[in-house]
Design a protein around this nucleic acid. Structure first.
Lengths: 201, 201
DNA sequence: AATTATACAGAACGATCGTTCGTTCGTATT
DNA sequence: AATACGAACGAACGATCGTTCTGTATAATT
């Protein structure tokens, strides 16, 4: 078996992380196992962990990669829409589409991580908090722009809107997946549109 | 150390389950460990597992006990209110109060379990599905009664209302706990009241 | 009072966990 | 051509996992 050329090294690390994202999407970040992941990648445990240092570093890399996958699927495509309510509407559509497409085989990654670490301190929890706060900030900025444009009631708190959208996507995604019911995402989308004061569509 | 009299046996089993509920509330049902739980209860691993047969039976007992704790805290007190919208309002208040009181030290138990098993088949997943469906059914019945009484728009789907309330409580509870922000539950309560068409209060 | 049943401790099992170590071997540098 | 670097391997580590088995002290039954 030939060793990897140094040009492939970055690729192999990325490959490992992507496989770990899919695994952690189902089993959770805490459910990642060096042995199982190494088997799946056909490498040795030591070869795998050697790239990252220790398991926690691997988990943090996995979280970062998952966030990037989410950003690519939800945030980036919506940047084409004008700021404010139209962009929020585009985000909701991309968000639901992302959940429907099963970009993460085990459901929204950040939701899983949030539940895993919401009561467990440590660097991973801090990372998750930062990710969620950043996303809520993005939503809040757009909600504020929508209110300024008169597309949301003047007494509507943009932070409330952001929190509601996040809660609905998070809770709705889990419930829909758990119940195995395709209407779960329909209901979630409708609820998110209601939050934005949009017609059911 | 004297052996337990047979009259205390049920108590000791219940004690073990209650301790396991608190542990699982933080670490997840899958995070329960016979060894740690036995240590915490000052018993041997074999003595603990002997009461339940195997770990899965323990986990199922833990889930059932957690549901009962939730039922006592949220459903039962709201039964005093008249059916329909008033009862839904009472449920929302009890629900938020329950989350605020920290009845589960690690956040809503069913939410944690839902995330753990939403992509993992097995008897435990089936139990969780049954629990969630039952709860959604309860909410839906009340929403239907509210609509019939004219307290909800005629075109409002009771199943939608139930799903929305569940999603908001689930997602909002996690986000609020994660961000360590007391306003998270305020926002969640406001969103749930908005779902029911109630004034912000 | 003798017997049966039960509740638990203690030890051990095979498996798996994350991690460390020394070694090998391909690639890059000098 | 000689050397240095780094990726990956295989073996082994101590710890912990869930489970099983045996022994024993107690409670319940006869």
């Amino acid at each position: 078996m030939p060793r990897r050329s140094s040009a492939d090294v970055a690729d192999s690390r990325a490959t490992a992380v992507q496989a770990a994202v899919d695994l952690a999407s189902v089993e959770g970040l805490e459910g990642i196992t060096i042995g199982r992941l190494a088997d799946q990648l056909s490498m040795s445990k030591s070869g795998l962990i050697g790239r990252f240092g220790d398991k926690e570093a691997l988990q943090r890399a996995v979280l970062a990669a998952a966030v990037e996958r989410f950003t690519d699927a939800v945030w980036r495509p919506a940047q084409g829409a004008p700021t404010g309510l139209p962009r929020l509407e585009a985000i909701v559509d991309a968000w639901i589409g992302h959940l429907r497409a099963g970009v993460f085989p085990g459901g929204c990654f950040v939701t899983t991580a949030s539940v895993e670490y919401d009561a467990r301190p440590g660097p991973l929890r801090d990372d998750v908090v930062a990710v969620v706060e950043r996303w809520l900030g993005v939503l809040e900025v757009e909600a504020a722009a929508a209110r300024e444009a008169g597309d949301l009631p003047p007494d509507r708190d943009p932070a409330d809107v952001a929190f509601e959208l996040h809660s609905l996507a998070s809770g709705g995604g889990v419930a829909g997946r758990l119940l195995g019911d395709a209407t779960g995402l329909d209901r979630t989308r409708a609820a998110m549109r209601r939050t934005l004061g949009l017609r059911p569509n």
